[in-house]
């Protein structure tokens, strides 16, 4: 299992479009993928789960990935956060 801290850096936060990108990316992988914010943990393959995080700009989330393709999954998901989900801000 890999654990990594990711930060929401786009100005508008994890709103509908970035949430959709995260879910779409996670769904490509076989591994179990979870994100935690405080005490709340959700399955990243669930759109409503990711939306329920209500993660605004600046929020730190713990990404936990467990499975055969965990390395690639962590890399791709972390990259989405880092590149601000391709948003200008």
């Amino acid at each position: 299992m890999i654990e990594k801290t990711v930060t929401v850096t786009n100005k508008l936060g994890l709103h509908a479009r970035p949430s959709a990108m995260v879910v779409q990316t996670a769904s490509k992988f076989e591994s179990e993928i979870h994100l935690s914010k405080g005490t709340m943990t959700i399955n990243v393959k669930s759109m409503l789960g990711v939306m329920a995080l209500a993660a605004e700009c600046g929020t730190e989330l713990i990404l936990r990935v467990d499975g055969p393709d965990e390395k690639e999954a962590v890399r791709e998901i972390a990259r989405l956060f880092k590149t601000r989900f391709r948003e200008a801000y």
């Binding site: 936060g13 994890l14 709103h15 509908a16 949430s19 409503l48 789960g49 329920a52 209500a54 605004e56």
Partner: peptide, 24 residues
């Protein structure tokens, strides 16, 4: 079941994130 998600979003201070309620 959906109510749980909507409640969490409604508690958010971020007006922009609360917009997701409309999609739901």
């Amino acid at each position: 079941t959906l109510g749980d998600t909507i409640d969490r979003l409604e508690k958010s201070d971020d007006l922009y994130l609360r917009q997701m309620i409309h999609d739901i």
